[in-house]
Amino acid sequence: MIISLYWRDHNPPHIHFAYGIYECSISVLDRVVNGQAPAKVIAKVNEWIDLHESEILTL
């Protein structure tokens, strides 16, 4: 899984991730998923966001 943060990307704050053939973005604030990926992968990305949310929001 590759998680990407783009400096000065458009709002709302979000992260992009790729897993195999899947590419998605997830809003940090409301966790809306744009794209498709297995539910277990999305859950792992949400756990990662939980751990790093304050850092993500200060970028």
Rank of each mutant, 00 (worst) to 15 (best):
V33N: 09
E23C: 12
E53S: 01
V45S: 08
W48D: 10
W48N: 14
W7D: 14
P13Q: 02
L51K: 15
L51R: 14
R8V: 02
H16F: 07
I21C: 01
A39I: 02
L59Y: 08
V33G: 02
D9V: 11
N46T: 07
Y22S: 13
N34M: 10
E53D: 00
H10E: 13
L5N: 11
H16R: 11
I15W: 05
I49P: 01
A39K: 09
G35S: 02
S54A: 12
A18Q: 04
S54N: 10
W48G: 11
I42M: 10
R8T: 03
E23Q: 15
L59P: 02
D9I: 08
S54H: 08
S4V: 05
W7V: 14
Y22K: 12
I42S: 03
N34P: 00
K40R: 08
I3N: 03
Y19I: 10
I49H: 10
Y19R: 10
G35R: 10
I49D: 09
V41H: 04
E55T: 04
I49T: 07
D50L: 13
E23F: 11
V41Q: 06
R8N: 15
V41P: 00
D50S: 15
H10N: 13
I15Y: 01
H14F: 00
W7G: 14
E23V: 15
V32R: 12
A37M: 05
L57E: 08
A39M: 12
R8D: 14
A37D: 06
E47N: 06
C24A: 05
L59W: 12
A18R: 09
H10Q: 11
N11D: 06
K44P: 05
R31F: 00
